[in-house]
Nucleic acid binder design. Structure first.
Lengths: 356, 356
DNA sequence: GTGAAAGCGCTAACAC
DNA sequence: GTGTTAGCGCTTTCAC
């Protein structure tokens, strides 16, 4: 292959004997350029296979036409859908997407903020890693509009779009209580992040309201190995072992909530192996409504997370912030929590075999 | 917030009374700059909160320090893992990642190639959408090294790293035959892409070798709705309905292969609802070994796809191409197909209850 | 309508 | 060691 340097405006200009400037305007479809010249220029550009250099354009325009997306783990189906939605919506607005994966590493998280700053992205959407996270506030203060996704850091004055986990957990738990459960527990991964905290709070609230007290703590912390096995969804095996313990210890709850549907897989197995019937002996409720959840036996009752809605809302909020950036009135951070629906299936119905 | 323009080399230079150039070299840790000056410059840079402008740097260096990744659907768990792996490996080599999602749209696919060209990425990793795809060849000829992922386009002379689906399907089918199956069928989505074609071929080869002939075509094309419901994994419901048809028509095969584990979910349900026992009355084998597959009852026998391995290999091949770019000897395109293992579980064991 | 000149922020040649 | 000059490819003044 011949070392074919890329065609530039200059090449077209030279080839046609006009100025670079004219070529630029012609191709940008600005007026103040003759019909004939424009035609000639466009033809020549096509002939030479001219492709504009986004880099150069961005440099002078001062806008990268790029959004940054920082995700902890694309293999989490919820985040996978966010990626799709955000990329798509950003693209329809003309923005390219720079994706960074942090794998729950505070270090990578910090460097991600730095990378976005260096590239000068026009806006950032971030699922922050657990921990402090003032580097995100610093990014924001550096003049880059940003919105936190799914995980809120209450101590930071940053926009946030996520799920109303508190309400969802509350409703789901109430549903189990109404189904007759009097002793419940909740499996949650041991990450100090807002979704977990909110689900726990909603769960507890429902218990309190129902006048249910338990001897020990009904919240079971699953030492998920997710952080070790990079780039994997949650590990059902972790929940499986804990559920086995519970079963073998004899103090079996009559309902189990899990923070994500993957944990339900482990719980299902532990119960089944012990000869217990899910949805009958023990009710189970999850979070995520992943594709497999409808196909388990029995079907899993679970909270459907409005991923597309959240992705869209986040991008729209970000674009709005980008537009009003530079305006005087610094509006306060917006914390938006989307409500979500509970998908009721046989695992919570004590329904002796009905399948959904 | 004060309209705080970003700090540049010029600002540091002015503030210290040195030339921009010196600042540049000091910060880049080049020699030919005095120890004291360097210290003063670094201190001032830190004080002012200087952040290098990657855009400007890339423009002059002629390298974007960016890789492009084009994916059809991040919600496909296999692709999600590819995204993680590729981002991670690219990052360790200093590259940022620009992600484009094509959603099986030939149009978006074409524009993706254009976008990558405009940004002048240093290399591209692409899961091409079905169809022609000479726009990818054009990108390649424009001087951007690229590697196709998972889907090969044999008519294009492009590097490719993927799965040896042919061999995997062959082995899996043989496994079912050895398990006693004499009448088999294969569920495959109706996309004209190489993975499907190769699995079909491997499946057929195994049948032929076993001397198995069927009256009709054993390959069942699933009109997957994936393309309509953007950003979702495969739809088990599609396979469910087709499996129902097969069951109700009475010509039940004694083994069913499916092109992805999600289809197995549908097949499981159809069989179970008909009172048939998976792994006993009908053997089932899948592709993907998704997290849920081990937790179905019975556990699903399935081909484990080496996603991380493929992601890594693809990036490494790409980096190698990038390094040797400009060299005279144009090496021929490399087509690499990774072997993968079959995870045998109860769905293929006719094992009356053993669970894995 | 078109061209000349300046500059986005940075690095690479050259002088001294 | 350090400064000066030039230029990456593009857009935006401002003359003409």
């Amino acid at each position: 292959m011949v070392e074919s340097r890329r065609v530039t405006l200059k090449d077209i200009a030279k080839s046609l004997g006009v100025s670079v400037n004219t070529v630029s305007r012609a191709l940008a479809d600005k007026d103040s350029v003759g019909e004939d010249t424009r035609a000639r220029i466009k033809a020549e550009a096509a002939r030479l296979g001219y492709v504009p250099n986004s880099m150069a354009r961005s440099l002078v325009l001062g806008s990268a036409m790029t959004l940054g997306l920082v995700i902890t783990n694309p293999s989490n189906p919820f985040y996978a859908r966010l990626i799709s939605t955000i990329e798509q919506r950003g693209r329809t607005h003309g923005y390219s997407l720079m994706l960074l994966v942090t794998e729950e590493s505070p270090d990578v998280d910090r460097r991600a903020a730095d990378t976005l700053l260096r590239w000068g992205v026009d806006g950032a959407l971030v699922v922050p890693v657990q921990g402090e996270g003032e580097h995100w506030e610093r990014l924001h203060e550096s003049g880059i509009p940003m919105v936190c996704l799914n995980r809120d850091v209450p101590t930071l004055d940053l926009d946030f779009v996520g799920v109303d986990y508190h309400h969802a957990a509350y409703e789901a738990t109430r549903h189990l209580v109404e189904g007759g459960a009097r002793s419940l527990c909740l499996f949650e991964e041991d990450l100090p992040i807002s979704p977990v905290a909110e689900r726990v709070a909603g769960f507890r609230k429902a218990l309190t309201e129902a006048g249910i007290e338990s001897s020990g703590d009904p919240v079971i912390s699953v030492p998920t190995r997710r952080r070790e096995s990079l780039a994997l969804p949650w590990e059902p095996a972790d929940a499986y072992r804990l559920a086995q313990d519970i079963v073998s210890q004899g103090d079996l709850p009559d309902a189990i909530m899990v923070g994500n549907d993957y944990f339900a897989l482990g719980v299902y197995r532990a119960l089944t192996e012990a000869g217990l019937r899910v949805g009958d002996d023990v009710l189970v409720g999850g979070f995520g409504d992943h594709p497999f959840s409808a196909y388990l036996s029995p079907g899993l009752t679970t909270v459907r997370l409005p991923a597309a809605q959240i992705g869209t809302a986040a991008v729209d909020l970000l674009l709005q912030r980008m537009r009003s950036h530079g305006d005087d009135g610094e509006t306060a951070a917006e914390k938006r929590r989307e409500r979500c629906g509970l998908v009721v299936r046989a695992s919570s119905r004590a329904s002796k075999g009905t399948m959904t």
